[in-house]
Design a protein around this nucleic acid. Sequence first.
DNA 1: GACCAGGCACATC
DNA 2: GATGTGCATGGT
Length: 219
Amino acid sequence: MSTSQLLMDMFEAMARALGPQHWWPAKTPWEVIVGAILTQNTAWRNVEKAITRLEEAGALEAERMRGLEESTLAEYIRAAGTYRVKAARLKRFVDFFYERHRGDLEAMFATPLRTLRDELLSVRGIGRETADAILLYAGHLPTFVVDAYTARILRRHGLIDEEATYDEMQEFFAFHLPENVDLYNEYHALLVQVGKRYCRPKARCEGCPLESFEHDMTR
DNA sequence: GACCAGGCACATC
DNA sequence: GATGTGCATGGT
């Protein structure tokens, strides 16, 4: 069987077992961006608290966030953890957004994908996963999001090298899957759910939708 | 009380 | 290039 077929079979198995994931859980593209930064190494539950706090403060909007003191912003997002670091990251992103794209989301996402990805990566505090999450879930641009769960699942199923880098894993999906935003969206969301529920470190694979696929849970 | 969560930057070797 | 560490809250 081809790797492409295998990846699609795995997708179908996860989709059947878990259903539609409805990512990204946000009302606006700007909220996606804020959430992408806040969720770095953080449980989504705590990100929701921070987002709610921002909303209550009327700060969940680029222009309003721009006018906030960094220390004030930090207090609003405290529940998301590493809050001083993240307040600085949000501020830097807002600056970039206005200086480079005049605060225009539509214009920003009209930038060619590779160019925009490089721009995002040049903002301190925006790494590969955050950049790709912004591009895919806020901009609806076809870039695959890789994360720790994705890496573990790919490794356990022997699909990639143990030491594959982020970019190598992303290229793996880009090479073997059709370039489709909706597919990328759902695929990543499903991998995260499977990772959380079944593919934890040292955990067994019982009940995992991917259990019937060749795997080695010791990895 | 340890461990983890939808990472990233920076120092050091 | 690889490895180690700080950031920090809140749930299990």
